[in-house]
Design a protein around this nucleic acid. Sequence first.
DNA 1: GAGACCACCTGGAAT
DNA 2: CATTCCAGGTGGTCT
Lengths: 176, 176
Amino acid sequence: MEISLFLIGLTPSDVGKLNRLVIPKKHAVKYLPLINEDQNEREEGEIVEDVEVVFYDRTMRQWKFRYCYWRSSQSFVFTSGWKRFVKEKNLKERDVIVFYTCDLEGQSNNFLMIDVHYYSEDDSVVTGKKVNESVHYSSEGQVKTQNFVNSKLKQDEAKPVEENKGGFMLFGVKIQ
Amino acid sequence: MEISLFLIGLTPSDVGKLNRLVIPKKHAVKYLPLINEDQNEREEGEIVEDVEVVFYDRTMRQWKFRYCYWRSSQSFVFTSGWKRFVKEKNLKERDVIVFYTCDLEGQSNNFLMIDVHYYSEDDSVVTGKKVNESVHYSSEGQVKTQNFVNSKLKQDEAKPVEENKGGFMLFGVKIQ
DNA sequence: GAGACCACCTGGAAT
DNA sequence: CATTCCAGGTGGTCT
């Protein structure tokens, strides 16, 4: 089954000329590989300065991003590879990307997935908060956009979808 | 006594969002600390990439600027600290900043001073030249703005004020 | 040469 | 209050 890890609502900068995606720290430290955030960390811990992370989209196309920490702004970012993703997925501000881990019934071939949810005026949006914090969906498990909305994902919270006996859900489709 | 080193007439960019002040090269190389202008300069010459320069205004408030060379535009600039100066002095384009060195009668406590001359329509301006090159004053030693105009400073030229026996001039005021 | 990438910087907002 | 975070920037390097 797939487990939704976190969502990111895209800012103008995320899809603009800066060619980077800022990963909110709370998600970065929780779900992404450990990277060196500390100036004087040079121990055996195998903590590295940056790392290549690999995701798959719904078509199982592979996407690689350089994931690193910018000390000066104390922020976690995807750099290399992000621009291509934005262009080929035609991402715009307020679109939402969703990160999943795909756990295939105890098999060892877990992998990470990435998918996009294009912004629509129809989606209800919590007002008065910035994009990153205002993501939620009003539908009851209804597939609204690209056949891909997990119901009741609210307020940028990661929330596993419920398990289905005898199969698993992948991008809103039940696999037997 | 104080010695006027040079003037800079502020451009829109100097007071805008670029957060930098371009120092005309002729003044930078003549009056400011040597910084590394050359790609392959790595010798013992103690020439550094950038430097913090310290000035004092008429109230003896200290102002620090990062002074560095931008290879891409081949220009000498103040960066860090400049924006705060612009904001707190409420500088606008065509205002003029004046750099002084303050030489206290052979004492070793020389220091650099910075002051502002706010633009006024009354000031006659040489036409047809850009702001940086068109600075001059029409008054005959008359203090016009903020009690601070040194007379006959023309065409962006550095020109020492005449010495006064028994004291020195500081921001247009004779110190005994 | 233009664009992508890289390691920095900054101000405002949130905490 | 001070500190952290991060959206929006920068110049420089490489391709």
